[in-house]
Simulated assay, not measured.
Amino acid sequence: MDKIVMNGMQFYGYHGVFPEENKLGQRYEADIEMHLPLDKPGNSDHLEDTINYAEAYEIVKNIMEKQTFKLIEALAEQVASKLLQTYTSINEITVRVRKPHPPVAIFFDGVAVEIHRKRA
């Protein structure tokens, strides 16, 4: 299956279990893989035959920056659901959300969740 990949998107959001996270916010990163046939846009060279990744980015940005979730699992689920709902050409989607600096006394490169959903 063909795919459109949007890697390394960065956002400032207010997600987390702790009240300070919801008040102060922090940086989040997201990667999206949208699996869909790309033969038609590959042959036509028309934007309307594919997913406009600038529009898809705005959908992700609105969820990441304007909504609040306790868990990044819920955040990733909302991103996947909204993109599947908006773009019926997507057959499968993988969403990775990273929280590079979680407020815990552990030294690591952050925490991430990855979900994979298929159209029912």
Rank of each mutant, 00 (worst) to 15 (best):
M1Y: 15
M1Q: 06
K3P: 09
K3Q: 10
I4V: 09
M6G: 01
N7S: 11
N7E: 11
N7P: 13
G8A: 01
G8Q: 08
G8E: 10
G8W: 09
G8C: 09
M9D: 08
M9E: 11
Q10Y: 12
Q10G: 09
F11G: 02
Y12P: 04
G13N: 03
G13M: 05
Y14G: 05
H15P: 05
H15Y: 03
H15W: 08
H15V: 00
V17I: 15
V17G: 03
F18E: 13
P19A: 07
E20A: 14
E20P: 01
E20C: 11
E20G: 04
E21Q: 08
E21S: 07
N22V: 09
L24H: 03
L24D: 15
G25V: 08
Q26T: 09
Y28I: 01
E29T: 13
E29M: 03
A30T: 04
A30C: 14
D31L: 03
I32N: 06
M34Q: 01
L36R: 04
L36D: 02
D39K: 12
D39H: 14
K40P: 05
K40Y: 07
N43Q: 14
N43C: 08
S44I: 10
S44P: 10
D45S: 07
L47F: 07
L47R: 05
E48S: 13
E48V: 06
D49F: 01
D49P: 02
D49A: 13
T50K: 06
T50N: 12
N52K: 13
N52T: 09
Y53V: 10
Y53L: 01
A54T: 13
Y57Q: 02
Y57W: 02
E58V: 10
E58H: 05
E58A: 14
I59W: 04
V60Q: 00
V60R: 08
K61C: 04
I63W: 04
I63Q: 01
I63R: 03
M64T: 01
M64Y: 05
M64K: 06
M64P: 04
M64R: 00
E65Y: 01
Q67H: 05
Q67Y: 08
T68L: 13
F69G: 04
F69I: 01
K70S: 05
K70Y: 08
I72Q: 02
I72K: 01
L75Q: 06
L75R: 03
L75E: 05
L75N: 04
A76K: 00
E77S: 15
Q78P: 00
Q78H: 13
Q78S: 15
V79P: 00
V79T: 08
K82H: 07
L83V: 09
L84E: 03
L84F: 05
T86K: 14
T86Q: 15
T88Y: 10
T88S: 15
S89M: 15
E92P: 00
I93E: 03
I93T: 02
R98I: 02
R98H: 00
P100E: 00
P100A: 03
P100L: 03
P100T: 02
P100H: 06
P103N: 02
V104L: 15
V104Y: 07
A105L: 12
A105F: 01
A105V: 10
A105P: 08
I106M: 12
F107W: 11
F107N: 15
F107A: 15
F108H: 10
D109V: 14
D109K: 13
A112H: 06
A112R: 12
E114T: 06
R117A: 14
K118Y: 10
R119N: 09
